[in-house]
């Protein structure tokens, strides 16, 4: 029987004055210190005794962490400490990346979204993250501050396994950068949880589609699946089908089937693998039909 502690275990709260100080501190305390944003994962795992850090490093106040900016040429930048509710409510996000707002809105509850952050969820590399799919679909990159200064990490190569990422000791993600959304893009996030709203996803289906002259079908679709693999999963064969063949209702079904065939979910306390597979097919199809409906309506 594993039971959580009544409160948080002992640690020291550290509030560095600058990113340089924060990275240096983290690097000097490898295995003992961890940066935290909203703490929604961190506190739970510490109460559970899975994480035993001696220092929690608060970085929310550091430069750029709380900003949302948009530039038509450069795209959208969301500071790492911007909470999900701000993402959902941001007119910039709503206008240019509604898929991201839709996905963020589906996370847990309003009061938890006051704490939860997109970057925090990405850094914890939870396979069930609702917003990660949209970030992948939009080709987002993470701006990371390490002991050697700033660098960018593309999301495609960021995840190494459940809870594992390319981040090194001393690294702090300061913001997530979205290139300008493809012209004419339409998106859909379908979350299947046990409850009607809230809950973790049994499966989460992100679909982004947009006109693309470089592909045979004239369109490009980005698909990302949550909770079906150790890390957010891109069903490449389904994406390929939709790029290569003329889009018809039958092709949408074929692509959904390909998405299902590509993923290998597991049985866990939330769902069986069989159900997850069926839901990947049915809900990818549903999302594709929805997105395609809007794309084709826009084309008329």
């Amino acid at each position: 029987m594993h039971s959580a502690h009544p409160g948080l275990p002992e640690f020291d709260y550290v509030k560095p004055a600058s990113l340089a100080e924060a990275s240096a501190f983290l690097k000097a305390h490898v295995g003992e210190a961890r940066p935290f944003m909203g703490g929604t994962d961190t506190f739970v795992r510490m109460r559970d005794g899975f994480w035993k850090e001696k220092y929690l490093v608060d970085v929310k106040h550091l430069e750029g962490m709380q900003d949302i900016t948009y530039d038509p040429a450069a795209g959208l930048v969301i500071g790492a400490a911007v909470n999900m509710n701000r993402v959902v409510a941001s007119p910039l996000v709503k206008e240019h990346y509604p898929l991201l707002a839709e996905a963020a809105h589906s996370v847990a509850s309003y009061q938890l979204r006051t704490r939860a952050t997109i970057v925090g969820n990405i850094c914890n590399a939870s396979p069930a993250g609702d917003t990660t799919g949209a970030c992948i679909a939009f080709d987002a990159r993470l701006k990371v501050h390490g002991v050697d200064g700033f660098r960018f990490e593309p999301l495609q190569t960021f995840f190494k396994g459940p809870g594992k990422t390319v981040l090194q000791p001393g690294d702090i993600v300061v913001s997530i950068h979205f290139p300008p959304a493809p012209r004419g893009a339409q998106g859909k996030y379908i979350k299947l949880g046990r409850n009607a709203i809230g809950d973790l996803s049994i499966v989460g289906i992100t679909v982004l589609g947009y006109p693309d002259a470089s592909s045979s079908s004239g369109y490009r679709f980005k698909i990302a699946l949550a909770s079906v693999a150790p890390t957010p999963f891109v069903p490449a064969p389904a994406e390929a089908l939709l790029a290569e063949k003329t889009i018809t209702p039958a092709l949408l079904e074929e692509a959904a089937q390909a998405a299902m065939d590509a993923c290998k979910p597991i049985d866990d306390v939330r769902s069986s693998a069989v159900y997850r597979k069926a839901m990947v097919r049915n809900l990818t199809h549903k999302a594709l039909v929805d997105v395609w409906g809007r794309l084709s309506a826009a084309a008329r």
Binding site: P6, F43, A108, Y110, Q111, T114
Partner: peptide, 21 residues
Amino acid sequence: AAGECGACTVMLNGEPINSCM
């Protein structure tokens, strides 16, 4: 004490938040 039940919700700078979190 895990941000799930909402019984500890308070308003912090105008926004509701789980005070256990």
